[in-house]
Computed example of a mutant assay.
Amino acid sequence: MKKIISILVIALTFTLTANAQKNMQQDAMIKDSTATIVSLEQTKGAFTQKTVTLKEGHYIFEIANNNVGHQVGFVLAPKANPEAHIKTAYVTKVVENNTKETSKVTTLKKGTYVYFCPMNPTPQYTLIVE
């Protein structure tokens, strides 16, 4: 019985290690790929870009705070479920007045998304991935 448990523990360890290595390799490939920077500007209560159209791929969102007067952020979500925030698209830290910050690499598939800032606050704008 101890031998069977030992074999199961070893097999589970190899499986977990292999999955962790695969995930790390996928993350490294995305980071090494050419992610396109999408620059968006916020002013008081609004984004200056009302609609964005992109192709499927990897993106980094750069958010500029143009004299809003306080910190801003960035939320991207599927249009069908605006509560399902895409966390990799969040800026890595809040955007101070008259500065810029970026998100992590975000992979977008075909579909319609919304973006907005609950801190500014702004309306929901449309981002289309073709």
Rank of each mutant, 00 (worst) to 15 (best):
T15W: 12
A20F: 07
G69D: 02
F116H: 03
A20M: 11
N81H: 12
T53N: 11
G73L: 07
S39H: 05
T112S: 09
T43M: 01
Q42F: 04
G69S: 03
A46P: 05
T15R: 06
L12S: 14
T17A: 12
L108S: 05
N120I: 02
S6H: 04
P118T: 10
N65I: 01
A20T: 03
P118G: 14
K109Q: 15
M29C: 08
N98V: 00
S103P: 06
V38Q: 01
P82Y: 04
N67Q: 01
V52K: 08
A77H: 08
G73D: 15
V9R: 01
T107H: 05
Q21N: 11
M1S: 14
L54V: 14
T13L: 07
I128D: 02
N81R: 13
P121H: 05
L12Q: 12
T102L: 08
P78V: 10
L54Q: 14
Q26G: 00
Y125R: 01
K2C: 04
A77G: 14
H85I: 15
V129H: 05
L40E: 01
Y90P: 01
D27K: 04
V38H: 03
A84D: 13
Q25P: 00
I128F: 03
V9I: 08
N19M: 06
V91F: 08
G57E: 08
I60Q: 13
A80G: 15
Q71N: 14
N66P: 02
C117R: 04
V9Q: 04
Q26C: 00
T15G: 13
T53H: 04
Q49I: 00
V94W: 12
T34Y: 15
T126A: 08
K79E: 15
T126P: 10
K100W: 01
L76N: 09
N97L: 09
I5Y: 01
Y115C: 09
V9W: 01
S6I: 00
G73H: 08
M24Q: 07
K109G: 13
Y59M: 11
M29W: 12
P78K: 13
N19V: 11
